[in-house]
């Protein structure tokens, strides 16, 4: 799939924002490490809102016709994308109410605060679920059509949220042992979940060009795709990544997205890093951003079969041939195009 920045940012930032909101609610519910102060709560909720907003704004950049974006809520009965929109929109009033309530009552522990915080957190979690299901419901993309996708979105969103939260605690010198441990635990969990996912997508899928065309009698190969240059389909679906590159990226995901934040947070819990602790969420974002890039670029739409590509593999054809990949100039808007797609 085309790893467009818009969708990468959408899922990355809004996931982190919803994760953060949920974590704020939980931490306040159970007064973990003493809970958050109203001011910290307000700041973190505002940060969560900011992250969610970055995600939402970038998602509209992905729309070719944003003037109709308001219609995107209408089909919540059937469309996970609509549901995501509905929950994301619901999130705002609740998160803002929570923020206001905490701010004006100057307490995050009164009933109103607890109720509002938990509801906002739950809506955030629901949005993450919808986001995951946007991908998981697609039977056309084997790498996405799995409950592992929402599970991963949860694990990564919560891990990011908790990393931010723990970092903020380290920065403001409060008790941070449980928060840091929880962040590390969530990062580990996310790493394990992602490992399971990576293992799972490595398995071959059943659909091949043979079954897709119905010619199961012999080897089927593309002779000509019927157009010399790219089309919407090749632009949208034909991105892929070489196995070595994917492996290196995955190492980077783990190093930057999981191990480095853990190490920094753990170190920060024991010594003074000053602002250096900000590297933890920063690297987590970069690592998980890479994860999201891989999530898209490794996803192979079945339609690629018709263009002569096997799912998850490089094109069968020589890279110098226009095996469906399309160059940025055909695409119009700036997109990330993996480098092997010379043309």
């Amino acid at each position: 799939m085309n790893p467009s920045l818009a969708v990468i940012f959408l899922t990355l930032f809004s996931g982190a924002g919803f994760g953060l909101m949920a974590m704020v609610a939980i931490v306040n519910d159970f007064a973990i490490d003493g809970g958050l102060s109203p001011l910290r709560t307000a700041i973190l909720v505002a940060l969560a809102l900011l992250l969610v907003t970055i995600g939402m704004v970038s998602s509209t950049a992905h729309l070719a016709n944003p003037k109709n974006a308001w219609r995107a809520f209408t089909r919540w009965r059937t469309s996970w994308l609509a549901r995501e929109g509905v929950f994301a929109v619901l999130f705002y009033p609740l998160a803002i109410a929570y923020l206001g309530w905490v701010f004006f009552t100057n307490s995050d522990q009164n009933d109103g605060a607890l109720v509002l915080g938990n509801v906002a957190g739950l809506i955030g979690l629901a949005t993450i679920f919808c986001q995951g299901m946007i991908y998981a419901c697609l039977r056309t993309i084997r790498q996405w059509h799995t409950p592992l996708v929402p599970a991963n979105f949860y694990a990564l969103g919560l891990a990011l949220g908790m990393t931010i939260l723990a970092t903020s605690r380290v920065l403001t010198h409060g008790p941070d042992l449980i928060l840091v441990s929880a962040a590390c635990a969530l990062l580990v969990a996310a790493g394990v979940m992602k490992a399971i996912y990576y293992f799972w997508i490595g398995a071959p899928s059943g659909t091949t060009l043979q079954t897709a065309t119905g010619f199961t009698g012999g080897r089927v190969k593309l002779l000509d795709q019927g157009h010399t240059f790219g089309t919407f389909l090749t632009h949208e679906f034909s991105n892929c990544i070489s196995p070595t590159r994917a492996r290196n990226f995955k190492i980077a995901v783990y190093v930057l997205g999981i191990f480095a934040p853990m190490a920094i947070l753990l170190a920060a819990a024991h010594m003074t890093l000053g602002l250096g602790v900000l590297l933890a969420p920063l690297l987590a974002f970069i690592g998980i951003g890479l994860e999201r890039y891989l999530f898209f670029v490794e996803a192979q739409h079945v339609v690629n079969l018709y263009h002569g590509r096997m799912p998850g593999s490089l094109p069968q054809m020589h890279p110098a041939l226009r095996g469906g990949a399309v160059s940025p100039s055909v695409v119009g808007k700036p997109r990330l195009v993996p480098s092997y797609e010379k043309r």
Partner: peptide
């Protein structure tokens, strides 16, 4: 609204 989502769902 041009979100492309339907095209993802089309095999």
């Amino acid at each position: 609204m041009g979100c492309n989502y339907c095209s993802w769902a089309c095999p």
